[in-house]
Amino acid sequence: MPMPMPMPMPVTTTGIAANPVLRVPAAAPAEAAAHFRAALRFQTDVSDVAAALGSGDPGCVVLDCRSTASWNQGHIPGALHLPTALISERATELLDPSVPVVTYCWGPGCNGATRAALALAELGHCVKEMIGGFEYWVREGFAYETEQGTARRDADPLTAPVTEACGC
C-alpha cells in the first residue's frame, strides 16, 4: 500500500512556507518586556509561594478561595480560608489591606483565584494570583494539610524537577 502524501505547508506570498508560530509576528522587545513585567505583577507560581512561606516571613497572605469541602480535602499549610462568595463581607475583618494577598483555587482549569483576586482588588487590596493552584502545589510535591493531617505526594516529574530546583 502506498504511503499517503504529506499535506503541503501553506505558502506565503514570498513562496516560503508559513510558520504557524509567527503567523502573528512576535512583539517588539520593549513591548514584550512591558507585557511580561506586567504579567509578573499579577501572577506568581507555586514554587515562589512555597519559597516565600518557607522563609518564615512571606510578606503576603496566601488565601484559599475554595469551598469548605474543598479546603477540608486539602489546602496549603498557613493559608487563610475565605471562599470567593464571602470576600465582600469578610475580607475587611480578616485581611490587613497593607499586606499583599496571593489567591489560589483548584488549578489551571479554574478561574476561581482570578475572581477572588478581582474581588480583593476592588476592595483595595494588592493581590496576585498563584498560577497552577492547589493542583500544582500538590503535583510539585509540596506538603498540604487535610482533615486527617499533613500529607505530601512525590513530585510529578512532568510538572516539577526531580532535582532540587528547576533553575528558572
Results as ranks from 00 to 15, higher is better:
Met1Thr: 10
Pro2Asn: 07
Pro2Arg: 11
Pro4Leu: 01
Pro4Glu: 03
Met5Glu: 15
Pro8Val: 06
Pro8Gly: 02
Pro8Phe: 08
Met9Ala: 13
Pro10Gln: 01
Pro10Tyr: 00
Thr13Glu: 08
Thr13His: 05
Thr14Phe: 07
Ile16Asn: 02
Ala17Gly: 07
Ala18His: 07
Arg23Ser: 14
Ala28Ile: 03
Ala28Asp: 15
Ala28Asn: 15
Ala28Leu: 12
Ala28Gly: 14
Ala30Pro: 03
Ala30Glu: 13
Ala30Phe: 14
Ala32Met: 07
Ala34Asn: 02
His35Tyr: 14
Arg41Tyr: 10
Arg41Asn: 15
Thr44Ile: 14
Val46Ile: 12
Ser47Gln: 13
Ser47Val: 14
Val49Arg: 13
Ala51Leu: 08
Ala51Val: 08
Leu53Phe: 02
Gly56Pro: 03
Asp57Pro: 04
Asp57Gln: 10
Asp57Lys: 09
Asp57Ser: 10
Cys60Lys: 06
Val61His: 04
Leu63His: 09
Cys65Tyr: 08
Ala69Ile: 04
Trp71Ala: 06
Trp71His: 14
Trp71Pro: 04
Asn72Trp: 05
Asn72Met: 09
Gln73Asp: 11
Gln73Gly: 13
Gly74Ser: 11
Gly78Ser: 11
Gly78Gln: 09
Ala79His: 05
Thr84Leu: 14
Ala85Asp: 13
Ile87Phe: 02
Ser88Pro: 00
Glu89His: 02
Arg90Gln: 11
Arg90Asp: 08
Glu93Gln: 12
Leu95Ile: 06
Leu95Thr: 05
Asp96Met: 09
Ser98Ile: 10
Ser98Asn: 00
Val99His: 04
Val101Gly: 04
Val101Ser: 09
Trp106Pro: 00
Gly107Met: 05
Pro108Val: 03
Gly109Gln: 03
Asn111Pro: 04
Asn111Phe: 08
Thr114Asn: 04
Thr114Val: 09
Arg115Glu: 02
Ala116Pro: 00
Ala117His: 15
Leu118Tyr: 00
Leu120His: 08
Ala121Arg: 14
His125Ser: 11
Val127Asp: 00
Glu129Trp: 01
Glu129Thr: 12
Met130Tyr: 14
Ile131Asp: 14
Gly132Tyr: 01
Gly133Thr: 05
Glu135Gln: 12
Tyr136Gln: 11
Trp137Lys: 01
Val138Ala: 06
Ala143Gly: 03
Ala143Cys: 07
Thr146Arg: 07
Glu147Pro: 03
Gln148Gly: 00
Gly149Ala: 03
Gly149Ser: 07
Arg152Thr: 05
Arg152Val: 08
Arg152Leu: 04
Arg153Gln: 09
Ala155Gly: 13
Asp156Ala: 03
Pro157Phe: 10
Pro157Arg: 10
Pro157Asn: 08
Ala160Val: 12
Glu164Pro: 12
Glu164Phe: 02
Ala165Gln: 07
Cys166Asn: 13
Cys166Asp: 13
Cys168Trp: 07
